[in-house]
Design a protein around this nucleic acid. Structure first.
Lengths: 241, 241
DNA sequence: TAGTGGTACGTGGTCTGACCACGTACCACT
DNA sequence: AGTGGTACGTGGTCAGACCACGTACCACTA
């Protein structure tokens, strides 16, 4: 009762992927556990090896998490494949951080601009929540989290999932690292900057929002990264007459 | 003579990955074929299944290409995992194209600016080559290729591999699709725009380069994407007094 | 009773060897 | 010289066994 065609694992990945996203859309929040590999193999009429290759693939894509001795669960870590790719591109961690930050400096002011045009009520609500969380944060850790949440909400409001993913990737990279926004400048100034940005977005003033965000990024010393690398071409040109 | 520890495939991926990048750095250009799975398994003292899971992983990362009945070869398609991630994020192809283009519009002018600061002699050379290729292009296809090559060279000159990867991803998406830069505006204007941009970069004038690139992007109707989406918030706000 | 250790079970991880499906290259035939 | 078939090597799948890891339960101890 078997139909041993080829590339089962590839098609299986797509099937299971679709099934998973459908399932998780149906019951979001609940940490779904997949059936055991053996059971899954029987149900899908394939060998365990094929199931394993499929789950491996989905794990690499940040959709599943496989725990030895425990099971396989659905997760949402779409940024992790990005990090992996960047890791291949730039083995040095500081390089990655620098270049990702460079991208952030390029993109985030314009995200603020887009957010000012596009933000829905829910988006604004989320930003306000993050802002009030930052205001009431007691510990450094809580402040950092609230800060990250504000920027995440802003990216979401801008309506560009790719930018969102990129910033997520940067956040992941900077997590247990120095260069946490808050640590640079302190809580109070960050709060003020965010307030200015949020105000501009609520007022639907794209240019003002972009300028405020640029100022924010400049204030947290991110501009230093940009300037230093600006001043250091890979290979200096001969002086031009 | 076996040491059946766990997570062999994970460690193996790293080992093989390092080995491959080292090998391909040593002999670049040569399309390297890996030894057959059985042989590889024996050499690495693991089962064939583990080798297969490792190669699957590396295939997904765009480092290997597995051909049924032929073999496994080293490739360089680091953009493909990005496309896969974006596909998960936005199942609709047009959405992906729109959002990636949006990113491009945000980033590329600033890339031109960075390129004006950082470009090495080799970078400039590459851009000039692409430009002359565009000039001498007879067919539409050759023109499109030369156009893409110019933008790729510019991203490289800007020294940000992440941006480079993102644009590569966009190019891949737009390959067998409408919205090829050239098709929008014709060869002659594109040539003129590129010339202006290149001139600014050679003259080390970041702002001029950025403006020229922005004008170029605007001229090829990419601004339309931006404007329409700007004007269409996901959920209109109530009028503010 | 509360704490502690061991043990059984279910999970993913690996091994083995066999067979199937696909491409290629070679060779006999036309 | 062209054409078809066939043998070989490759990746793809299957089956069943065993290993390694976590957990939960339970008897034992203080």
């Amino acid at each position: 009762m078997r139909f041993p065609s080829v590339n089962r694992s590839t098609t299986l990945v797509e099937d299971v992927c679709a099934l998973i996203t459908r399932e998780s859309r149906k019951a979001p929040g609940a940490d779904e556990w997949l059936p055991p590999e053996r059971q899954l193999a029987e149900k899908l009429c394939v060998s365990r090896q094929v199931v394993r290759e499929a789950t491996k693939r989905l794990e690499l894509q940040g959709i599943l998490e496989v725990c030895h001795g425990v099971g396989t669960r659905v997760v949402n870590r779409l940024h992790s494949p990005l990090n992996r790719s960047f890791e291949l591109l730039m083995p040095d961690r500081d390089d990655r951080f620098t270049k990702l930050t460079e991208m952030r400096v390029m993109v985030e002011p314009q995200l603020a601009s887009l957010a000012a045009s596009r933000a829905s009520h829910e988006d604004l609500q989320a930003m306000r929540l993050a802002q009030s969380n930052l205001e009431s944060a007691e510990t450094q850790e809580a402040a950092v989290l609230a800060d990250m949440e504000f920027h995440r909400a802003l990216a979401k409001a801008a309506g560009n999932p790719i930018a969102e993913l990129m910033l997520e990737s940067l956040a992941e990279l900077g997590k247990a690292s120095r260069s946490q926004t808050i640590g640079m400048v302190g809580k109070a100034p960050a709060l003020a900057h965010h307030a200015t940005i949020l105000e501009a977005i609520e007022a639907r003033k794209p240019d003002t929002a972009a300028k405020a965000m640029a100022a924010h990024l400049g204030a947290i010393e991110l501009h230093l990264l940009k300037e230093t690398s600006h001043a250091r071409p890979k290979k200096p040109l001969a002086a031009r007459s």
